[in-house]
Write a protein that binds this DNA or RNA. Structure first.
Lengths: 218, 218, 218, 218
DNA sequence: GATGAATGAGATTTCATTCAT
DNA sequence: CATGAATGAAATCTCATTCAT
């Protein structure tokens, strides 16, 4: 039942790094893990690039693995909960008149967030995909956490008649697959790529109307 | 300008593995690279699991890196060209009456292919995402190769009035993003997952009509 | 219930070292562990003194700890079983007329054996005393194994009237304490010390008659 | 000719530890050294367990080695001199009528002392046996110091006719070997073992009369 | 006096690769 | 073609010790 990585995730408070050198280690690690991957980055390289001794890294983070978690955990703690509360509820209850608008706001918000944390996002995705143990522990965490966040919204707009009359889980599967592919392709495959408002709008339109022509007219 | 990996890709003929032991090495490597990633699999482990000596591996493959390429290259050589010729042209000229039908056939075909080569697909994706040098060399190869394959088809169905009136590159971006997300999520994140006909149909419908309700009516 | 070190002890067959280099590693380790102790001997030192690379050590022995066991285990397997069968039974049934004679023979035999394996004996004792985990696993092994070997003999000579009329366990406790102290002091504290026939005879006399004067006569 | 450890032993006065934190460091070190040995206990562990900073340890003790000496030296200074004066002389001149009684008193006294200082005794023995340099410096110290303490007594009781007519050094060798084995086995191998009056009496009887039956009779 | 961040030397361990058989 | 012992470079990690605060 015990899940050490999730335990670590939960245990990690909001404590930010105590010293300048620790901060430099984390920042450097993010950059190097994002570029070459965790397994291809040595602690010696990190130490050199961060201008600290290797001892310092291990003094503070214990193991290289825990250094990785020290990067991933706060990101995970920020990414989904924030999505849950700030984005979903706030957006939904006050401003949003339509699912289309909700989707547009969500996309803009998450694109902005990931653009700001692009390298951590890369590290996170790469390691979740690459390392079986991380996948085993984190993927269920998401698949349990994320769909419920959206189910209510989808149901609501199905009732209002805006969304197609399919079971919410099937709607979400398509939607999340597209959004996942969107983020991964844009932030992992196309580096240095900047997502424009127009592109977000294309995605929104694609989600809403698909590719066939005469959806609306006549 | 020289590109060693592409060179290797092109140089590699259709030669299949000569000896039983070589075959076992390749098969074992695929399994282990798929599960733990290239960087986390040692040649000693492969040798043990394949029941050969480490010497044998290096006799045949020279380096561990070349062993990886010996796995990836034939896969790449199969995946896209086959897609190009067999699927696209054949499908298009003879059977296909609509883009929707083309998309359905393409998806079924590629789902079948990847299901058969699931582990190699995992190795391929993981390493392309994980290792900068591989990404730098292979991603442009795809972005140059793949869109042209589809441009004609998209244009054709735009003219026939089935597809929305957007520039082909924007249509393709949305489409390929979705399809990429579909394959990656189904084959990398959800292991042991079997894709049903129904699910393919859901994707097709989503691509064609999106999520909003009143696509057709009134 | 499982006991990894005992498992290793039992698993270890009579296989002697396969290669010359491995033999040199073991021999060098014994010398260095005996002199400076396991914890104060680095694998780098061993490699240098044995004329092999560090890699070779770890290729064959896996860990430094397993190298230690590779030394201790065959020693343990030789020391006690041999004592049990060859020394006790053979000596007892055929040659021995008295407990005194049995004790004399036993002492000579074991002194000869340990003199031949002095350094391994030192390593063994030092590590059993020094490291809690080894003690926890090996001490019960001895306290279960050794006393039964002697109980019969003691009982037999109690009946024949040669030995004092005390419970065998109390006799053995005194006897084994003395013998243990004898071996440890002579082989661990006094190095380069050679045990003479006379000294063995003194021990035998001490065991039999103690230090008080008027044991026998008048 | 200079002997740093002996120098330290002599230099160390009766100064007890000045601050609470120093006391905690020493106490914690004794426990941890006794359990895992000096070499397997890090100063970081000691600091954590003692609730002080690592800096504090080095502030007071300079080096880890000196911390060990700060434990061993007062013990050595207590153990033998006290034995010399209080036990030997006092006991001898006033109360003791026989060697047997002297031995009994000595054993009771030392058993009580070591029982009280069991962990320090363990540290002391372990490190003397384990580390060559300590052995080289401390063993001669004992072999020079201890036998003279007993020679007079042995000679006296040889003259009085109680003890066997052997050279004192041979008598002492047997006796000290037994006593050493007794203390080491009881306090190092059998932990949590409590030595009873009966057991002491058994040892005394063994020393005086040995194991053979008809010492006295007829 | 006390702290604990930082260090660097060195320890153990891993691993792709070589090569004699 | 096949082996597996051997290597050495590099990786992760440990730890006594220093020092600014």
């Amino acid at each position: 039942m015990s899940n050490p990585i999730l335990d670590a995730i939960l245990a990690q408070g909001l404590t930010k790094w105590k010293t300048e050198k620790q901060r430099r280690v984390v920042e450097t690690s993010i950059k190097m893990f994002a570029e070459k991957g965790y397994a291809n980055t040595s602690t010696a390289e990190i130490a050199r690039a961060a201008g600290v001794s290797e001892g310092t890294i291990f003094k503070h983070f214990g193991t290289k693995d825990h250094l990785l978690l020290s990067i991933i955990v706060p990101f995970v703690n920020d990414f989904f909960p924030v999505m849950a509360k700030e984005v979903l509820n706030d957006t939904l209850s006050e401003n949003t008149k339509s699912f289309e608008q909700f989707l547009r706001d969500l996309l803009k918000n998450r694109v902005a967030f990931i653009t700001e944390n692009k390298e951590i996002f890369q590290v996170f995705i790469k390691e979740v995909i690459y390392r079986e143990e991380l996948k085993r522990e984190l993927v269920p965490y998401f698949t349990k956490l994320v769909p419920p966040l959206f189910t209510n919204i989808v149901e609501q707009f199905k009732e209002s008649g805006e969304l197609i009359d399919l079971p919410a889980d099937r709607i979400l599967k398509s939607l999340l697959t597209l959004l996942g592919g969107f983020f991964v392709s844009r932030f992992l495959l196309m580096e240095n790529y900047i997502i424009s408002e127009n592109e977000i709008e294309d995605v929104v339109q694609f989600v809403m109307n698909g590719l066939s022509k005469n959806q609306t007219a006549e």
